[in-house]
Design a protein around this nucleic acid. Sequence first.
DNA 1: GCCAACGTTGGC
DNA 2: GCCAACGTTGGC
Length: 164
Amino acid sequence: MERRRYWLFKSEPDEFSIDDLRRAPQGTQRWDGVRNYQARNFLRDHVKIGDGVLFYHSSTREPAVAGTATIVREGYPDPTASDPGSPYCDENHDPSRPRWYSVNLCFESKFVTPLTRGVLAGHPVLSGMMVMRRGMRLSIQKVRATQWRAVLKLARKLSSKADE
DNA sequence: GCCAACGTTGGC
DNA sequence: GCCAACGTTGGC
């Protein structure tokens, strides 16, 4: 049995936020519009059903890990690539040889207290996350199991503090 | 709004 | 195949 893998998906909350995911039908959403080959390879080849996803809000006043999600459908051709009405439409796209891929993910949790970069930077494990690297703009990133556990633990800790 | 870092494009 | 120019990302 293969080990569960973990990922970080970046999204600008103005475009699509953790709340949007929670409110989606069945809490499930297609992750489309990825137009970077490295991220595409992850979606096409490595992201599997049941994998855990850290939902990261980028390009916003306070970038943060906002919650978690689960992969519910594995890589399949991204329909927006051949949709003339979509801003993600790829003019050179040949549907018989799909170039861009989507997965579906399902809402799992929203953190009461989002884990901001400041908080992550102060953590011995999480300061080493890929997303913390300067200039790192890959929108789908690998997350280590130790990092995943540390994120959930820290999120629980900060949430209980917020309740006091 | 600034700007560093990055990925892509296209001329050669 | 190189690499300069360009557009984009994304933290600050």
